[in-house]
């Protein structure tokens, strides 16, 4: 396992926030975190990202996250934010280059890598565009490229956390981004944990899916077994029907 979580709990003031007894993410797989709003998906992701204080243990490659050297950890764990505030007019390529902050790399190598990851993230054409002027979706792809650069020198399989990575993308971009993420998992051994709202994206791209409700893990399984019409009705309150499309894939409608 790349990521293992044991007895994780968070208490927000007096209310219960999150309680995850035993959960993990393995190498080469895309894990989708599913659940309705307030189920604890983003909270769980923030715990793994180290943005919240928690009780329990979160280990990356069997070493507790707090015991990693912060620079080495940054080479193995990257977080794609939903939105980023940046008031200064960096070019998109400069924002991507910030991904090299924890890396030991010369300027020339950074430039070459920036070009490579920007083409992977399909935002090469934005290279010289001013970041503040980009659309939400373009910004997301620039940050995706930045995360790829950040993980490019990992010597163990890295962990990539995605917080609603497709929220600002149009339909075609959503699919190309998730295809790219799945390819990274399958071909380069990335372990990916993604908060997804679109259940069909989870069905199509995720290897594993975890359903959260009221801060607890309800079930962890393949998305095909997890996302039955009955569960969708119970947890999302939507009377879904499952059909098989012409490619033989299950689709919720």
């Amino acid at each position: 396992m790349v990521l293992t979580i044991e007895n994780l709990s968070i208490v927000h003031g007096s209310s219960f926030g999150l309680g995850v007894d035993d959960w993990g993410a393995s190498q080469g797989q895309l894990h989708a975190l599913l659940g309705r709003n307030g189920a604890g998906k983003s909270t769980l992701l923030k715990c793994i990202a180290g943005e919240l204080t928690y009780r329990g243990s979160i280990c990356l490659h069997d070493l507790d996250l707090s015991r990693w050297d912060s620079t080495v950890r940054a080479r193995h764990l990257a977080v794609l934010p939903q939105a980023s505030q940046l008031n200064f007019s960096f070019s998109a390529a400069e924002v991507v280059a910030l991904g090299a902050t924890p890396l030991a790399m010369g300027w020339r190598d950074v430039q070459a890598e920036v070009r490579r990851v920007m083409s992977l993230a399909q935002c090469e054409h934005l290279r010289d565009a001013a970041y503040p002027g980009l659309s939400g979706g373009e910004k997301q792809r620039v940050h995706f490229a930045r995360c790829l650069l950040q993980l490019s020198q990992a010597d163990k399989p890295p962990l990539l956390l995605l917080d609603e990575p497709t929220s600002a993308q149009d339909l075609g971009q959503q699919h190309s981004l998730l295809q790219q993420v799945r390819r990274l998992a399958e071909e380069e051994g990335y372990s990916v944990v993604a908060v997804l709202h679109d259940l069909n994206q989870a069905l199509r791209y995720a290897h594993r899916a975890t359903l959260l409700d009221a801060g607890k893990v309800v079930r962890e399984d393949t998305p095909q077994l997890l996302l039955t019409p009955e569960r969708v009705q119970v947890f999302w309150g939507y009377p879904a029907e499952r059909v098989v499309n012409q490619r033989g894939e299950a689709v919720l409608v």
Binding site: A49, T71, A74, L77, A78, S84, V95, Q150
Partner: peptide, 10 residues
């Protein structure tokens, strides 16, 4: 980029 992002960058 923001404090959280800077922390993620080590």
């Amino acid at each position: 980029l923001g404090e959280a992002e800077a922390r993620h960058l080590g």
